[in-house]
Amino acid sequence: MAKWGMVIDLEKCTGCQACSTACQMENNRLPGENYQDVIYYTEGRQPTPSLKWFPRPCMHCEEPSCMHVCPTKATFKTEDGVVLIDWNKCIGCKYCMVACPYGVRFYTDEKALLEPNLKDVFKGEGELSWNPPYKGPQQDPAHGVGIQPAGVVSKCTFCYHKISKAPKGVPDLDEDVAELREFVPACVRCCAPKARYFGDLDNPASKVSRLISEKDGTRLLDHTGNKPQVYYLTGAGAAGSAVPSSRSTTSKA
């Protein structure tokens, strides 16, 4: 069984946010609640300020703290290494949102970032908390895929509705390989500078394994022990060349 993971090369990342928009298209996300964000930081002063960025999907940790705190096992890890939420089990306590060190989780019932609320414009019924006309065909609440029912938490699934249909045993899901294209997570498939790679971390022959080895893949907040399955390459000269040590823009006054 594969252990799916992602590599993000910050030397190539242009900070364009196509990953964010492809994600919201594929996963029917509401404004400001994409399953993955690009995070921008400003440091320094004129005339030499620096602007850095890096994309932040769910890390699909090997030891996900969100899973460990979930009182109902609604958050679980699949055999192929993906952290998912079973919406049939989620009670909406939001403990996982509190316990995720990376801030990647969303609760269904909230004030909208932007009014008018899209949920009121495209009202849903029953299982669907809203129902936009551009909703995709996939709906798999047991794996947290599709439109959320009310009262649950959701998060990036590595586009589980795509990767779970991939042929078994492939080392990488590369969008440039025609037969595999439809199985590639949206944020990887769309990436114009090809800053993202998706593959089997357990397969030493995979491109992701090679990149992590050759280009010194690093993990965000490794000290938390969550052991992300998303690795960053921070080669010299990258725009967001360093994963910031600080997760917030504020520091001690």
């Binding site: 705190v69 009182p71 096992k73 089990k89 009670i91 306590c93 939001k94 938490v153």
Partner: peptide, 27 residues
């Protein structure tokens, strides 16, 4: 009033036995 699914909580926590969660033990 805070939980998304309070009634589901009444049985789902006990049935799923997630011993690593403080919120399993608390109830």
């Amino acid at each position: 009033l805070e939980l998304g699914h309070p009634f589901r909580a009444t049985y789902a926590i006990l049935l799923n036995f997630q011993t690593s969660s403080p919120l399993f033990w608390k109830p």
